[in-house]
Amino acid sequence: MPLELKCHVGIGPTVRGKALVADDNFSARYDLDRIKGVFSRPQHKLVGQSYRDVILVLNTAKGGVATAWMLHEMAARNIAPKAILFNSANTILAQGAALADMAMCDRFADGDVTQLIETGDDVQVDPAAGIVTVMNKALA
C-alpha cells in the first residue's frame, strides 16, 4: 500500500523513480563527477554511485552557489537526478531546481526523510501538492 509523505510545497514537475538515499549533504560542485554522473567525493556516503534518473534523498545542502547553474547544466545533458528531496533545502538548491525544471521538496512532516525512504523504493514526487508517495518499497 502506498505511503504518503507530506512536505512543504516545492518546485518542478511531478516525477516518479527509484530512490537513492543517504544521511549526507549535497553540493554539485563538491560531491559529483558530473561528466560520469557519479558521486566522486571520497568522503560522501554515495561515492561511486550513479545519480542519473534517480530520486535523490539527502539531508541538506552544503557549500557554494555553483549548484544553481550545475543542476541546469546536468539536466541539459540528461545526466541528472529526476528529483532531489531534502530534510532542509537551501536557497541555492531551490533556485537551481527552478532553472532546471527539476522536482525538489523539503521539510517533511513525518520526520527525517532519509529514514522514511530507502534506497530502491519506487517514489513519486508531486512538488505542487507537497506530497511524496512511496509507491512500492524496495525488495529486501
Binding site: 560542485r29 552557489v65 541546469h72 545533458r77
Partner: peptide, 15 residues
C-alpha cells in the same frame, strides 16, 4: 553573479 563556465556549461551560456 557567480557564473563560471564550468558551472554554466554550454547550456548555461546559451541560456
Amino acid at each position: 553573479m557567480m557564473a563560471d563556465p564550468e558551472s554554466l556549461g554550454d547550456a548555461g551560456v546559451s541560456f
